[in-house]
Design a protein around this nucleic acid. Structure first.
Lengths: 383, 383
DNA sequence: GAACTTTGTTTGGCCGTCGACCTAAGTCGG
DNA sequence: CCGACTTAGGTCGACGGCCAAACAAAGTTC
């Protein structure tokens, strides 16, 4: 029992437009190696379902001017969700990964998948109606969760801070409740993808560091997200740091990065409650907080030196709550030490530019790329 | 100007046999979603050029028995070369990556590409004739070099120990001299691929550590070799180790792993010339050498802890000259410390089983996988 | 405004694939 | 041992996607 074979090659043609460059039928024919006549039919098909539209009328060079065609970013919508420990961000994105609408809800992830996801669905419907768009315009859901995820099945895998979520089948829920496929991943991973999409679209090797209450990394290598054998790649929190001798970590070991340089550790040291409070102190110019954050940067930089040697990224991006100038300065001081091997010295260092939208953008991009793949577009054309 | 489109889908069918399982025409039709009649023609085509052959005559279940077909591993040959600093291994492999013939030559890589590669070509021809095979049976060259390689172009990239090789176009040389495409990579990378192919074929996330004169890592993640932005991923030699305070490294920094735990450092400490001498001492039961190697294992284990946290491999493999029991014990003592995060505790640790053949096997596998890809097989059918 | 250039559309034909039918070659039960 | 049954392999007409060529459209250039 197999599918009756793709009804047409329109989805292959669609892939040629994924780079965003508007093209004429003649250019598409050349690129695809198809006859102009065939391309004409395929383009008509794509325009017919609204995925592609003519744009930029004419640029004649002595003959009949050609229409240029491009993907219509507004043709369909992506639902993107970024779940943290205490709140969820729900966003509707267009196909260019622009955030069209965003809403944050405060609700502990520990409330469990039923309560959280019901909230997500309701919020999604509200956002759609505020945009004046139909639910049927949604083609995929991307969702990030604060814990390890088995990417192939989209199920959380023994997450430490998400009681009730272990093994929950998010894609099945999405198909049942919203009628769209879902792509689930770790929250740091989606932030890495989001940041790369916005700030470093041409860089295939990016190491994204989330420094908030905890510390984690998302790895994009060779243009692909690296998840590791059990979906726990990027767990930098419990790597040992030189300065940590004698400092006990909650995990039982001593000298863990998280016990010294995380938002949680800094908050404790500075006598405030949360990582956000630390950021506020630093923002208000508090000298003690600034110095502490800079030291955290040096500790983090030490760990990053090893990471950079191992995976050789082109750029390291620091993101989330505490990616503030003092932290970046501290990291830079260690990472750009003059007496260092090549890989380290040539690496770029940047602070995130996406702010708190990295997560939803990344989740949206992952879901979109799946939905607009050759197979995905074939499915869209069939429905 | 485009190619006249693939003349047939035989190469797609070929891919279905890449897993080594012999299949009947009916099974292939089911898998490919093609009609039995079509499969019959494609199979005939593949059998015609010798890439596929009937094997295992009959297994009737009440009807006419079917022939099973499988790739003929001896149909074509792969040339695989592993270049070290002081010697080259040249091997001829079949399509199952079995080493059919192997020869080692001693010649400094610093003699330059012309001298070394001329030697390689001559050795290859000698091996082929000893096997009674024609040069035209070769379909690809895989070659590992002791330095960073820009994988897309196959050119060495500012290699520190390979004077004369910077930017040398190995694929062009191969096409000119042998008439086959070449795949070039770093020597540690090819060892990682070789070891994975032989010992861990079902594991998609492997961290391979080469510990010989120097220390380097090859990373297979998500089933793919990770090379990093500049082809220098896996450069663990100059990561800082806790025990290294006060120990100067040749790179100028202090406390580098290589300054403490490499074969070069051990040889110096033990008063012998090379890493091989250290291995000999350990093999003869020398207590001082054994203790030193075990300590090197603990130092290496410390670095591996960070690496495992970052990329979450399923297995760490220790290979090359010094991957002896004392080293493995030292690594294990640190890596399996009871108070450790999940990812570290669940990682596997093994010593290489391929010995000095890991390099040529890996180089062969990389070249073979390229040559037997859909496009590669299409090219084979056309010639 | 005539010649030229390039695009877009229509049309007949080619080629690959399908599916139905037929033959081949075995098993199974009497 | 033989005939019914089952499954595999091969042949052939039909269908359909794609191509190339011819044609129509819509500009530029002189």
């Amino acid at each position: 029992m197999t599918l009756p074979a793709p009804p047409s090659g329109a989805s292959e043609l669609f892939q040629l437009l994924r780079d965003g460059v508007p093209r004429t039928r003649a250019e598409l024919a050349e690129l695809a190696g198809l006859a102009r006549s065939t391309v004409g039919l395929r383009v008509d098909e794509l325009v017919g379902v609204g995925l592609v539209r003519p744009v930029g009328d004419a640029v004649s060079s002595g003959g009949r001017p050609a229409y240029r065609f491009a993907i219509d970013p507004g043709a369909r919508l992506i639902l993107a969700v970024d779940c943290g420990a205490r709140h969820q961000r729900v966003a509707v994105l267009d196909l260019d990964a622009n955030v069209l609408a965003l809403e944050m809800h405060v609700r502990p992830i520990a409330d469990g998948p039923d309560a959280v996801l019901e909230d997500v669905a309701a919020t999604a419907r509200a956002l759609l109606s505020s945009l004046g768009r139909a639910e049927s315009d949604l083609i995929a859901l991307g969702i990030g969760l604060p814990g390890p995820v088995e990417h192939a099945t989209g199920r959380p895998l023994q997450p430490p801070i998400m009681p009730g979520w272990d093994g929950f089948d998010v894609p099945a829920w999405s198909m049942r409740e919203l009628g769209i496929p879902a792509l689930v991943d770790n929250d740091v991973n989606i932030m890495a993808v989001g940041e790369r999409t916005v700030a470093l679209p041409d860089t295939d090797d990016v190491l994204f560091i989330k420094i908030a209450t905890g510390i984690g990394a998302g790895i994009v290598s060779g243009g692909r997200l690296q998840r590791g054998a059990r979906g726990t790649a990027g767990d930098l929190g419990h790597v040992r740091v030189a300065r940590g001798t004698g400092v006990r970590c909650s995990c039982g070991k001593e000298g863990c990065l998280e016990a010294l340089a995380s938002g949680g550790a800094l908050a404790r040291a500075l006598g405030v409650a949360t990582a956000e409070d630390v950021a506020t102190l630093v923002g208000s110019g508090d000298a003690r907080a600034t110095a502490a954050l800079q030291q955290a940067g040096r500790d983090l930089g030490e760990v990053l030196l090893s990471c950079v040697s191992l995976i050789n990224p082109a750029t390291v991006v620091l993101g989330s709550t505490l990616a503030l100038p003092p932290l970046v300065d501290g990291v830079r001081a260690v990472l750009y030490d003059p007496a260092l091997p090549e890989a380290a010295r040539q690496v770029g260092l940047e602070a995130s530019v996406t702010g708190d939208r990295a997560g939803v953008i990344g989740a949206g991009v992952l879901a979109r790329d799946e939905a607009l793949s050759t197979d995905g577009v074939t499915a869209l054309l069939a429905r």
